[in-house]
Design a protein around this nucleic acid. Structure first.
Length: 721
DNA sequence: ATAGGGTTAG
């Protein structure tokens, strides 16, 4: 009897032990749902089972559920407390982990080390050191190493080295040395890293790997290769580091050579090789390895799915996702991102509904997908349902609302944010500028500086575009100075915006100067300069710049020809204009769009060829836009052709019934030819529709019902720099 | 078997 009870108890212990092993394995692979299922089905559990499950939740970002388990757990041991602290630490919950540390009944060296790395990860080095100092009895070798690593990772090399020398020599090991070295190599300090490496008393494979990776990050491929070849006992990480270096340089044959030569391979090595092929878009090669490899984990599946998404084979990606033997958020999110990028929001929604363990990245992908495709109603709905809002998403929502012209909603989120980064400001600023609130764009540029946020190329592009539209040369010049001061003068996008600003403010020579000083140029740069010469009336100069551009091997696009044709129009170069209009599609393969027709109508109309331009509009193969009819109306006004004018005006009013300037133009045509009764009728029609001259409106003015005068008072330079 | 420090894959 007693023997059989003992036997049963022994069996029970064996079962718990083996199920705990399985639980650990599932937690490590991120197969959280299977872990939950197993945990719930276990006939008996011990503290290890609970601890495992707490850790499993926390490592998969589900820290709230981990805590619920911790609170429900029947008898907690020291490891339970440490596990929960580690869980908070992994999820950047600094407050919660330090609270738990204060509450726990007893602490050991694990607890101390956990807190030190938690503080260090959050840059709170003084708090880490205070704790380290206050508990000398708990300072283990590992604890010293954690503190050293904390200093080194935060760039405090002197403190790291000082503590390294201070620690008892007997417990100083290769990890201690490597902790300092990693600080150097991972922050690109290779000169100091090399010096430290040479002075190191003890080196192991990790030290050499750090050097190789450091050189690779710094783009010093030769040194990386030399150090790799000289590594005395390379481990798998050494090979994978070097292999990755080849992949990143697009050198897949070399990478494969290393992979084939490797003395042993693990999952990480296989995954690295697959990732290399995926990055170089060799999806077939990647898939071949995927089929050959002995085992796969969530990283393997995610990499492959991502690969198919990159080459736009969404069906293949989905096949893989459905074939996965377990669920994983990262893999699901890779697929979701594929749908979102292809604007297949219905499929994205279907997949999203199926994902049980949604993380931040997953929510972000879905909501930003809706925001980018202009479906703000859907975005808002999901946004409200999201448990934890993050800054990325707040910024996305601001940008989404702004792009839809919903500045009120955008500001509602923006104003409530406690912390804003450059992207938050850029979202608001570009929204203001895209919606034509140019004064407010500049005002918020100033506010951003006052809050201590550094503008980037995007902020400058919006600011300069606003200066171009106002136009305000004075503000534009100030932005230019600030741009130089901040060190963005070599930025391509900022340079393009500067050219546009100077050109539209009538300073074409300054625009040219910016162009000549630019480190590199693209098609937009050339287009900006050509259009700049055109709008300033230098038609021939614009055309010579166009020839210069062709000589440099740039292929003109639609925008280029708008510049060229308007240059001909502004310069009265009718024959050249007709020649370019003809050659743009025939020679350069650029199909004319409505804007080009508007230029041609303008060109012909200016020189009195009104009937000819009317015929051009009548025969054009695409729908004439308001711009085209407007140009025709303008031409009629110059040459007094009231019949065509009336026709053009009628078409114009069909497209833009509420635009006051159209009525003004038509009434001017009638006034020019002395038909006063018709002038009166147009004016009456305007009044009937409740139109008046458009106010120079401003978003802030509309909200505050007052006129701001910040332009003359505020200065971009000063206060902050 | 569950908690801590330095290198490699999504």
């Amino acid at each position: 009897m007693a023997a059989s009870i003992l036997k049963t108890a022994g069996h029970r212990q064996t079962l718990i032990f083996s199920q705990n092993l399985k639980l650990t394995h599932l937690a490590r692979c991120g197969r959280i749902d299977q872990a939950i299922k197993l945990f719930e089905s276990m006939p008996a559990r011990n503290a290890v089972s609970w601890n495992c499950m707490i850790s499993a939740f926390a490592k998969n970002g589900r820290v709230t559920e981990a805590r619920r388990l911790f609170d429900r757990m029947p008898s907690k041991n020291l490891i339970s407390w440490n596990t929960m602290i580690a869980g908070y630490s992994h999820n950047d919950c600094l407050l919660e982990s330090s609270q738990l540390f204060d509450e726990m009944p007893t602490r050991d060296s694990f607890s101390l080390t956990l807190m030190i790395s938690c503080y260090s990860r959050n840059g709170e080095l003084e708090r880490a050191r205070d704790l380290f100092n206050s508990l000398p009895a708990l300072r283990s070798q590992v604890c010293y190493n954690a503190m050293i690593a904390g200093y080194a990772k935060n760039g405090r090399f002197e403190d790291a080295v000082a503590l390294l020398n201070e620690m008892p020599a007997s417990s100083r090991n290769s990890v201690s040395w490597n902790s300092v070295l990693a600080g150097y190599t991972q922050s690109g300090e290779m000169a100091r890293g090399l010096k430290f490496f040479e002075e190191m008393k003890e080196k192991d494979a990790v030290s050499w790997n750090l050097m190789v990776d450091g050189f690779l990050q710094a783009g010093n491929f030769e040194s990386a290769w030399i150090f790799f070849k000289k590594t005395p006992c390379p481990n798998i990480a050494s090979w994978v580091t070097m292999l990755n270096g080849f992949s990143k340089n697009g050198n897949m044959d070399e990478a494969r050579g290393l992979f084939d030569e490797m003395p042993e391979r693990n999952l990480v090595a296989w995954n690295a090789m697959i990732s290399g092929y995926v990055q170089s878009l060799q999806i077939e090669e990647a898939h071949k390895l995927f089929c050959e490899m002995p085992e796969r984990n969530s990283v393997t599946w995610t990499t492959m799915i991502n690969g198919y998404v990159r080459v736009r084979k969404l069906e293949k990606a989905r096949e893989l996702l459905d074939a996965m033997p377990f669920e994983n958020v990262a893999a699901q999110t890779a697929m979701l991102t594929g749908y979102v990028r292809s604007m297949r929001m219905d499929e994205a929604e279907g997949l999203f509904a199926k994902i049980s363990a949604r993380d931040d990245i997953c929510w972000n992908a879905m909501i930003s997908g809706y925001a980018h495709s202009g479906r703000m109603d859907k975005a808002v709905e999901l946004f409200k349902r999201m448990p934890r809002k993050n800054m990325f998403l707040l910024n996305t929502m601001i940008a989404g609302h702004a792009q839809q012209g919903e500045m009120h909603e955008a500001f509602e989120i923006f104003n409530r944010m406690k912390v804003r980064n450059t992207v938050s400001w850029n979202s608001i600023i570009s929204g203001l500028s895209q919606n034509g609130f140019f004064f407010d764009t500049l005002q918020h540029f100033v506010l951003m500086r006052k809050e201590g946020r550094k503008p980037d190329w995007c902020t400058f592009a919006c600011g300069l575009t606003s200066c171009a539209h106002l136009p305000s040369l004075q503000m534009g010049k100030q932005l230019h100075l600030l741009l130089l001061e901040i060190g963005l003068s070599n930025d391509l996008f900022a340079g393009n915006a500067l050219i546009n600003m100077y050109a539209r403010c009538g300073r074409i020579s300054s625009a040219r100067k910016v162009f000549d000083e630019m480190a590199s140029v693209d098609l937009i740069t050339w287009n900006s300069l050509i259009a700049g010469y055109a709008i300033n009336g230098f038609g021939r100069k614009a055309i010579s710049v166009f020839r210069e551009m062709e000589g440099k091997g740039f292929m003109p696009d639609e925008i280029t020809f708008v510049g060229v044709l308007s240059a001909c129009s502004h310069g009265g170069l009718v024959e050249e204009g007709l020649k370019y209009f003809d050659s743009m599609s025939r020679v350069h393969g650029v199909k004319p769009v409505a804007e080009h027709y508007a230029c041609m109508v303008d060109l012909l109309g200016r020189t009195g060829r009104v009937v000819e331009s009317y015929k051009l509009v009548r025969d054009m193969p695409l729908e004439a836009s308001a711009g085209v009819w407007g140009a025709l109306l303008g031409a009629c006004r110059l040459h007094g052709n009231t019949d065509i004018a009336s026709f053009a005006a009628a078409k114009l009013f069909e497209i833009e019934p509420r635009r006051a300037s159209n009525y003004v133009m038509l009434s001017n045509v009638h006034a020019d030819s002395g038909r006063w009764e018709k002038v009166g009728r147009v004016r009456a029609a305007m009044n009937d529709m409740g139109m008046q001259k458009q106010p120079g409106c401003s978003w802030v003015d509309v909200r505050r019902r007052r006129i701001g005068s910040f332009v003359s008072d505020d200065c971009f330079i000063g206060e902050n720099g």
